[in-house]
Design a protein around this nucleic acid. Structure first.
Lengths: 258, 258
DNA sequence: ACAGAACAGTGTCCGTCGGATACGGTTTTT
DNA sequence: AAAAACCGTATCCGACGGACACTGTTCTGT
């Protein structure tokens, strides 16, 4: 395993890597394929957008295309690889970022990163299953890598080291994922909510009834949210701005010190 | 669905809520149960710790206990509820936090939150499947709620509004989850790594070979990490401190302004 | 032109999964 | 002692991911 010729950090996931990055030229012999990788992937994404990742099965995808289940395996080695393709396709090409001659964002790293976060957040909102699909080790595709590139590029001119740039991007994307998590809970149950805090506090509130003695701080916080309507709907922005604040103060402390 | 008598944000998850929070008194008639909810849950956790959530199936858990698969359904309504129990049990009781008479942490909110993060991070390291199990809407159990209570309590005396407290806790826990994600990738593939950045840059490096023109900023950042050994192993702390910095600067700006 | 190689899609089979149902044995209440 | 309640088991089901053998189609080398 670790001693074979083609050593790679990808391990058993070479199939995904090849499919995501490889050219896949058509063989010149045999009948023309009636399906295409792209069509399969997009059909699977459409199913996932409606019913979640659980609604995506080989037979359902094939059925949607009026084909047999096994025909899909001519295009995709297995479901794992299909999901990998779904992820990268659903991410889409990262939006182009404005940059000056030096490759830096004209409005500064903070605005660039903020815009990047908003766009990525919109992707998560459009494809909620992405949050569940991107847990655990996997191979990044070109689009996903492109998104990361954009974020790192926004931080490139700031004086942050390479490792710090990666770490910072991880913090921001982690926050977006966290927000996406609770946003994905929206519309579940009887209390229709439209904002993350509402979901959180609605769910928490029900649990906390009659138990505020066990969870006093939490009960107080939830009660405060329920009372103060103006405090709602800011979870994404609040967290993001706090992270950006933290980066900014770190940067100014660093430039002042050195 | 939304109009039935017992309206609840839990929707179809009443079973989990009852199992997690309800007393579950033994019925007085019939033979004594040979199993216990706790034994089943702990067996399932042990399986998940070794082979991930995918290694947990009803028959495997039952087999481990030398029982039939269906016997488990006397204790648990379904697998969803079993996983909910696994989550809350694996989280464990939140560690007690030192507090003074007013309920505030003696070393300040920053130290308290930092310690909380370290402890929660250790839980995620011990049970990596928790990251994958806690995606999507679900009912929080008493332990999970207890962890949240501790974090909110640490922020209770800071001047943050209730909603901001919840948001801040969400940011920190989101960061821990993000770190846990890439830490869970460790040991996959041939490159044995022990720190998040190493995993990230090792996986990224392999993809970036010969493609640095398409991803210049990323390639530069990764190269910098590979070169600078001292920059490694700080992902958790770096991100956490940045978040705490951001909260601190927000707090000082607020108290200065009002 | 023609044979054979390389390919595409199908039909059938297997093991595993979560779960429903029906049943016999056990313990307590009346 | 009878009846009710409960425990664990056996059997069955549909859906899942996937292996394999097979027929039909298309291109290539002679």
């Amino acid at each position: 395993m670790a001693g074979d010729g083609k050593s790679s950090v990808f391990g058993d996931q070479a199939g995904s890597a090849e499919l995501l990055w490889g050219g896949r030229e058509r063989p010149s012999r045999g009948p023309k394929p009636a399906l295409s990788l792209d069509r399969i992937t997009r059909t699977a994404i459409a199913l996932a957008d409606i019913g979640g990742l659980g609604a995506v099965s080989m037979q359902r995808v094939a059925g949607e295309l009026d084909f047999t289940k096994m025909s899909l395996y001519r295009y995709v080695p297995g479901k794992t690889e299909l999901v990998a393709l779904m992820i990268d396709t659903a991410m889409g090409e990262p939006p182009a970022v404005r940059a000056d001659a030096a490759g830096h964002a004209p409005d500064g790293w903070r605005a660039a990163l903020r815009e990047w976060a908003g766009q990525l957040s919109a992707v998560f909102a459009r494809h909620p299953w992405l949050l569940g699909a991107t847990v655990g080790p996997r191979v990044m595709g070109p689009n996903e890598l492109g998104w990361t590139e954009r974020a790192v590029a926004a931080l490139a001119g700031t004086g942050l080291t390479g490792g710090e740039q990666l770490d910072a991007v991880l913090v921001v994307s982690g926050h977006l994922r966290a927000i996406g998590q609770v946003s994905a809970s929206m519309g579940v149950g009887s209390a229709r909510a439209s904002e993350p805090e509402q979901v959180m506090s609605a769910a928490l509130n029900e649990l906390l009834v009659g138990r505020s003695d066990r969870f006093p701080a939490l009960a107080a916080a939830v009660a405060s949210v329920e009372a103060d309507a103006a405090a709602r709907g800011q979870a994404l922005e609040f967290g993001l701005e706090r992270i950006l604040d933290g980066l900014e103060s770190y940067l100014s402390a660093r430039t002042a010190g050195s």
